[in-house]
Write a protein that binds this DNA or RNA. Sequence first.
DNA 1: GTCTATAAGCGGATAGAC
DNA 2: GTCTATCCGCTTATAGAC
Lengths: 228, 228
Amino acid sequence: MKKAAESTRVKHSATREQLEQDILAAAKRLFAKRGFGGVSLDHVAREVGVSKQNLLYYFPSKEELYRRVLHGVLDVWLSYMDALSHRADDPEQALREYIAGKLRFSREHPDDSRVYANEVISGAPIFSAEIAARVIPALQADVAIFNRWARLGLCRPVDGRHLMILLWASTQAYADWASQISLVLEKPALEVQDFEAAESLLVDMVLRTVLIAAPAAAPAQSRRRSSR
Amino acid sequence: MKKAAESTRVKHSATREQLEQDILAAAKRLFAKRGFGGVSLDHVAREVGVSKQNLLYYFPSKEELYRRVLHGVLDVWLSYMDALSHRADDPEQALREYIAGKLRFSREHPDDSRVYANEVISGAPIFSAEIAARVIPALQADVAIFNRWARLGLCRPVDGRHLMILLWASTQAYADWASQISLVLEKPALEVQDFEAAESLLVDMVLRTVLIAAPAAAPAQSRRRSSR
DNA sequence: GTCTATAAGCGGATAGAC
DNA sequence: GTCTATCCGCTTATAGAC
């Protein structure tokens, strides 16, 4: 992917749009691994196969590049988070799909999850405004749906905010903490069945806690289109 | 704390030991907030009130300073993690104390949690050996205890590894994600009762999932010495 | 759009006087 | 142990030729 000593640039050649996307993708990978301060523009540029000066032609500053990356990350993140509102009348199915979706995000976009985690751990110095404007409302909508279920007697009245926090944390852990989890599971990298095991446990726990008539048997269905 | 324009150094003056501790504490705070790459030695030195050159007299390199910080973080982290083995015959009480301990860690040592999280997210480039040597065995001991309970019929046979991952993730979230959680809860900072609400939900979920004879009522005891 | 050149400063780290 | 002085590579960013 970067062995050609000839003229570096090979693959993207195409449009300006494509080159910008390549830069954003490389930057995301590096920001995920080393954090904002651990990445240099030179590093990103070399990864893509352009000069640093050229990169600065497309993105006027490092912070702007980071901002663009974060913006894209948030788009992806939110796109996996709207399941709760799709099944507004069926708590069990809605929660199953929500959990499956969040785990799918961790599996399909681990770097997005890590970039987001890095920013939040740092106290969201750059992106707190956008998080407050885009993430929090989405979450509060989910909490509201959950509270409505409780009011309608469709589920037990647990604290929806803390439940959501628990769901985020325990699903995104499979992206953010992958290096440690693979040590625990004693395999070089996480596999599909590890995500399935996580989903199975988490769904089980949530449904046992939240449903009125708890499913006596372990609820191991819903593997069809949710998690692969 | 750093307004005196006179000679900076005021508080630590004491022993070499004390100065090293001050440096480590300041470095921990900064690494937690900005990651390894986002911190400069100058930055740390100014925070403590010594010169960069003097700091390098005590710690021969930035990486060595980081290593020392991480080592201390791991000490603290592990000291909060041994609850499971203390009540090897009583799953319910052991799990209650384990969860309470982990949440106490997040509340009392949020920066330790963040430094650790930063390192793990980055793939643990520097500390994977020490994590493998110190954290994983501790965790596997916990999993073993859990599996023994299941074998003895003291609890249901859920996957202990994924359960532990869930417990870590959802407890440490209250340190690592504090900035976002406080946005969700609409308060400037997390308070004791937020940790109690988290503990209550998490204990409830785990016990409902794990115990054979699930406690019908929400198990809201064990607030005494575990969480304050 | 891409290149060469270069500014201007910060980064970690060392040498040696006191 | 602490300070002054300094090395040197890397950093972000800009100017201007092609």
